[in-house]
Structures are given as structure tokens and as C-alpha cells.
Design a protein around this nucleic acid. Structure first.
Length: 266
DNA sequence: ATGTGTTCCTGTCCGC
DNA sequence: TGCGGACAGGAACACA
């Protein structure tokens, strides 16, 4: 999409998680896309009129590409399809559809220079792969917090972009019990946490992400990090940590599944 | 202030 | 093959 003009915008319903911004179709149509960016789990689409389209895929959202487009990014499937809520017709013949069965995704428009003040962006913590995210920062952030450490990692104000899978995987790699109060993590354990988060995310990205159901790489191929999970979705199986004889358990924390090994995660 | 439970919605899977 | 219930990658919001 980058460098191309949106020739037509089809909006097939008034909202996703929230109502779409005023006159969204009109404001997008005719705009040239200057660049595509990302902050946390938000896709940022900078337009040539000084506005930025903010897109969140929620749980099940996907951008599906079809139409006359050179090979690599063509998602071969019949169109139009069920749950194609917003469709962009680009000047290179590409049809790009925001498809989202569960409709937990969202879109909003905001002036590009005010992106950091947007209500969805302003409270986000640092990017986990940036220099701003280090042990000193995380220790400060977790100190005094009674909440279980897993909940603190899922809180996007602590660190941006960690979700349920990677919170579980990360804590296993760092050897930390997900139920442990955030403020009670020993310094030696805490020191492992930031590198564990960075490693897990780098490996997952290199594997094209985790395709449990809906996730696809930009090319349309499945990700394959799910084959490298140590704990996620592996309840009842043995812990993969060398020399650990523990079994992976599933518990529910704040309504969400947590997978961990109670033997090597303390 | 901080932590938890509920809520939005559709699709899939499992047991009967 | 149908039906009910559990569960799913997110995160704002209401409430204690």
C-alpha cells in the first residue's frame, strides 16, 4: 500500500469495536499512503494530508490482499468475503480488505503530529525491543505492585505489545511463576525477564508469528512459532526445560488462560 | 490508586 | 448431524 493512492474506500458497516470516525470513507479516498508504521499492536497508516489511520486487528482481524498485484502479497481467496468490513481499492489494482469475524478490531483517524497524544497510544509503555525497555525501567514499573506478574506484563502500560501467548512463554523462559506478585520478584529473576521478553519476541517474529487460527504473515503464509511453544497450549505435557520433570499446568488468571511449569517457574 | 470481573462478537471444537 | 457449553490471540470499562 505504501506509495499508492486509495482510489475507493468501501465501508460495509458503521463500526467495529467503536464507531468509525466521521466521514471515514471520504477522508481516506484519494489519499496517497506515505508510509506504514507500527506502535505496539497498532498499525499506523500515514496519509498525504497529515492524517494517520490507526488500525488494530483485535483477536481475529486480518488484512487480506487480492486483485491485480504482483505475486508475493496476493492472498489467494475468493472475494468479496464474509466479514470484509472495510475494503481499500488501490491504484495498483490491489484490493485490501480489513476482515474481522469477531469485530474486536478498531480504526480511527487522527492528525499525524498528534499521534502520541491519541487516547489509544498515549498510555502505552515502551516498545520491548527498544533501548528504553531495560531492567531498571521494568523494576521501577513493577515495584509496589501486588498484581500477579503475568497480569502486569499484559498491562500495555508496562510494556507495549505483549499478549497472552508471549507473556506465558516469556515467564517460562525467565523461570518466574506467573502468579507471583510483581513486587516480589527477586532481582536475579527480574534480570532474566527483559532478555527473555526480547528473545521470545525476536524468535517469534523470525518465525512469522504464532498461527493458532487466524494469524497470517503479510505474505498470507502461516506463522510457525506455535511449534516452538514451551508452555502455551501444552497443559498436561512435560516441561521442555532440560532436566525439569515438571508438567505444564493451565490455570485461569483474570479470566485468561495461563500455562506454566510449577517446578521450574518460581 | 489498584486489582478483578465483565463485556463486546463469531467461529470452532468437544462431548453427548 | 444437531445441540449446548467452553474457549479463543485484546483491552476498555465498571465496579469493589
Amino acid at each position: 500500500m505504501a506509495g499508492h493512492v486509495i482510489e475507493r474506500t468501501e465501508v460495509n458497516r458503521p463500526d467495529l469495536r467503536w464507531p468509525f470516525p466521521e466521514r471515514m470513507a471520504e477522508r481516506l479516498t484519494g489519499r496517497r499512503i506515505e508510509r506504514l508504521g507500527r506502535r505496539s499492536k497498532y498499525i499506523l497508516v500515514d496519509l498525504d494530508d497529515g492524517e494517520t489511520l490507526i488500525v488494530h486487528l483485535g483477536m481475529s482481524g486480518r488484512m487480506l490482499i487480492s486483485g491485480a498485484l504482483p505475486g508475493r502479497f496476493h492472498h489467494d481467496r475468493p472475494v468479496p468475503a464474509k466479514h470484509d468490513h472495510v475494503v481499500f481499492y488501490m491504484d495498483n489494482g490491489a484490493r485490501v480488505a480489513f476482515n474481522d469475524a469477531r469485530r474486536f478490531g478498531s480504526m480511527d483517524l487522527t492528525p499525524t503530529h498528534k499521534i502520541d497524544d491519541h487516547r489509544l497510544i498515549a498510555t502505552l509503555g515502551p516498545e520491548p525491543l527498544s533501548n528504553a525497555f531495560d531492567t531498571r525501567y521494568l523494576a521501577e514499573r513493577l515495584s509496589g505492585r501486588h498484581m500477579p506478574v503475568k497480569g502486569a506484563l499484559l498491562d500495555q502500560r508496562t510494556v507495549a505489545g505483549l499478549g497472552n501467548i508471549y507473556a506465558c512463554e516469556t515467564l517460562h523462559r525467565a523461570g518466574i511463576d506467573p502468579r507471583r506478585a510483581a513486587r516480589r520478584i527477586a532481582p536475579a529473576q527480574l534480570a532474566k525477564l527483559v532478555p527473555a521478553i526480547r528473545e521470545v519476541l525476536r524468535e517469534a517474529i523470525a518465525s512469522g508469528g504464532s498461527s493458532l487460527r487466524d494469524h497470517r504473515q503479510a505474505t498470507g503464509e502461516l506463522g510457525y512459532f506455535q511449534h516452538s511453544f514451551a508452555v502455551y497450549g501444552r497443559a498436561g505435557r512435560s516441561c521442555p526445560t532440560p532436566d525439569c520433570t515438571g508438567m505444564i499446568q493451565r490455570i485461569v488468571q483474570s479470566g485468561r488462560s495461563t500455562f506454566f511449569c510449577s517446578r521450574c517457574q518460581r
